[in-house]
Design a protein around this nucleic acid. Structure first.
Lengths: 335, 335
DNA sequence: GGCTTAAATGTAAGCGCTTACACCAAAATA
DNA sequence: TATTTTGGTGTAAGCGCTTACATTTAAGCC
């Protein structure tokens, strides 16, 4: 591979001049520039980004840490971030924490060690304190899907409470009053917030809150299965089940059918997130759209502005979910 | 951030010695090693991987080029590669080509420019010639999901023909004889191969091949919709539709229902790939499992062996798909 | 044409690390 | 005891680039 030195020799200029035309960092006479460009082409010169990164202390790379690589949720997020970065010739380097707090820390250190110019983090286990400290370090960070008051400037988050509220409200508006709820794990903040929204909707409709109508699942399909079985076996009457996320909703659907119910006539199901496959279920899942791609995009934008001084459109750090009504919630007139 | 120089000063040894304990590249006396390690800990020293990479011409990074970041198919692949690399403290740097031939080339150049030690490529548009030339370059490559005879050593591929055969054969064995096929785009090799397998199964069962029973779709949900409508409108009798992939199969399901069919009684549907959501459809989609995670894993392994000289288990470059029978294909006795 | 000023280019010192080579002491051999 | 080997360590030259600073060249002005 040709180096900048060879280019400079061929073009008959100094290293510095070549570097200048590559980065057009300062004025270079047109004729000189042409010479250099010709030489570059002739040698098929490609700048060595590692050397560049070492010398300039700038990598044009944005580190992205996600919980897992194989989930469609994160994929959409990454895709959005990558698309945005690409426009400015920045690149992402991704690492996965596999939902493990140790890995999360390692991942962050890896990305910093890789000289990333900024970090976009989706972390669940790491403490607020750690993140606050991190945000005061050298590398700018943006935290996705989490709200830490002390550093809210660095956080992009979704109003999960509102989402939970909208979901349940929609179900109520379809005539349901006997509603059960399958929540995500208690240690997940979004799960707690979604449940809070659910409660608010019930209260507002004058439906009392009954702890026995809430089941705590694992955000996976199994959680939906277990939740449905739990309610089914307990003899509780219910015409609708609202779920903390779409995975659990599909679990409910499958298990309800196994128990002989036909959907959506006998049971309405509501999800949350609007993941890709929610369109593929039958009946198609009504859910709450989680604008994760918009949020990812925004994270990238913030970095473009703050780190690379590229001015973009307006900045918004707080996102609102919206309802997606499909067929899995049926209208009933009498409970 | 502390540098190796500061560590060496604090530990009272030379740069070289510190480097040696970091990489344990040559013998260092135990006591010296301890001193250095203590110094590293005290300074919270983290090696600067960019500098390391520049000096050693080795990045411990494996470049991965995928067609798109947002597809669950590639996500699974990436996840598998990453998991394998992680075991050996290697990392992946991913870039997406967005299904664009120009981007594919750019992506490869980017990864090479990033000093990747090896490349794992999933490319569709780039010519065989280009890849053959590339494989003769300095950077080792592994090509996923494509078979190029001249460099088959670098290729990991799936027997798509067999998959197509198994899919149709299973449908036939369920008693169907009036079968239509919705293929992927004609310029995609896997689509052609899958279709060839379909034909073989038909022939073998003594069912003639009828071009009017083959529709060329786009591998997306819309392809399934269009395909079903096409056959439905044309008045062709069919009890089963075999699809080139799962996305199209879901399109068929949705559209068939819109036309008043009930599934799987009135129509059997067969997919291909066994993507995540195929478990979530109703009826659950029968399909052909595409062992993309195994293939990704194997790609990583090959690199571990060839590039990093880590000996792994056995190497296999040719994968076979297997049937996944769920409920979307029903048994019929009479057509 | 001589002067000032600005524009264009060159020089060279790093960035933080690896590694070939040199060196030295201690152990092994004769 | 002299000599070779070896294990342990240091020295210093890069890796390919950026960039502050110095220097040269061209332009502008009276």
């Amino acid at each position: 591979m040709a180096t900048i030195y060879e280019v400079s020799k061929l073009a008959g200029v100094s290293l510095a001049t070549v570097s200048r035309v590559i980065n057009d960092s300062s004025a270079v006479r047109k004729t000189t520039k042409d010479k250099v460009e010709r030489a570059m082409k002739q040698l098929n010169y490609k700048p060595n980004s590692v050397a560049k990164s070492l010398a300039s202390n700038r990598s044009d790379c944005i580190g992205v840490l996600v919980s897992e690589l194989k989930s469609p949720f994160f994929t959409r997020m990454m895709g959005a971030i990558d698309a945005e970065c690409r426009q400015f010739e920045k690149h992402i380097v991704v690492t996965a924490s596999e939902n493990d707090p140790l890995h999360e820390k390692e991942g962050i250190e890896f990305l910093i060690g890789r000289n990333c110019d900024a970090l976009i983090l989706h972390v669940e286990s790491l403490s607020d304190e750690y993140l606050i400290e991190l945000s005061q370090g050298k590398v700018p960070i943006v935290i996705l899907n989490r709200q830490i008051p002390q550093i809210s400037d660095h956080c992009i988050s979704l109003n999960n409470e509102l989402g939970g509220y909208l979901a349940t409200k929609a179900v109520i508006e379809h005539g349901h009053r006997n509603i059960v709820y399958i929540s995500g794990p208690e240690h997940k903040k979004d799960a707690i917030q979604r449940l809070a929204g659910h409660r608010r909707a019930l209260m507002e409709a004058g439906i009392g809150i009954d702890q026995t109508r809430i089941f705590t699942g694992d955000y996976l399909q199994t959680g939906g299965q277990e939740g449905f079985k739990h309610f089914h076996d307990s003899g509780i009457q219910f015409s609708a089940v609202v779920c903390g996320n779409d995975e659990m909703a599909t679990g409910v659907m499958a298990t309800a059918r196994e128990c002989g119910l036909s959907l959506p006539e006998d049971l309405s199901v509501m999800g949350f997130d609007n993941v890709v496959f929610s369109r593929y279920t039958f009946p198609r899942l009504s859910t709450v759209d989680n604008p994760i791609t918009d949020m990812g995009k925004m994270a990238a934008r913030i970095i473009m502005e703050d780190v690379y001084k590229k001015s973009m459109g307006s900045i918004n750090k707080s996102f609102e979910p919206s309802l997606v009504i499909r067929e899995s919630v049926s209208r009933i007139t009498k409970d």
